[in-house]
């Protein structure tokens, strides 16, 4: 059967649109870390952060390390390809602001024993933009 040549660019566009639209059905976290046990009666909240510097599994795990030991932080979930982190916390103990500051704080580098500054920058928290990436 004869097919007009413009079928090819049309198929290219349709498949590109399909790929772009279909991505939302394949979302999986890059890192999920349970950092603490939540009290059974706690009314937990989630703060959603877009973090400059969080772009792969390694940088996501490092960012999770920033929250390790921070009182009230229960779980850290990162979506590295979207530079996105979701932090589940107990609002009776922690706030979204303390979480943001902890992520942006100096990062201890185990290999060199030095502190690294400015590794992470929260550019958006719960829909509020903070700074340019």
């Amino acid at each position: 059967m004869r097919v007009p040549p413009w079928t090819v660019p049309l198929l290219v566009l349709l498949c590109a649109a399909l790929g772009l639209a279909g991505a939302r059905f394949l979302v999986r976290p890059s890192v999920v870390l349970d950092l603490a046990q939540a009290p059974s009666d706690a009314d937990l909240r989630t703060t959603v952060l877009v973090v400059g510097g969080l772009f792969c599994v390694d940088t996501a795990e490092r960012a999770a390390g920033q929250l390790d030991g921070l009182p009230g932080v229960v779980r850290f979930t990162a979506y590295a390809s979207r530079n996105r982190a979701e932090v589940l916390y107990d609002p009776a103990v922690a706030t979204a602001e303390t979480i943001r500051k902890a992520i942006e704080g100096p990062v201890y580098d185990k290999e060199t024993g030095e502190f690294l500054f400015g590794l992470y920058r929260v550019v958006e928290a719960d829909g509020v933009k903070y700074s340019a990436p």
Binding site: L26, R28, S30
Partner: peptide, 16 residues
């Protein structure tokens, strides 16, 4: 889980 910086968009575009 995804590898390194790859994500759902890479996978969806590969399937497409």
């Amino acid at each position: 889980k995804f590898t390194c910086a790859a994500g759902e968009l890479n996978l969806a575009l590969f399937l497409a």
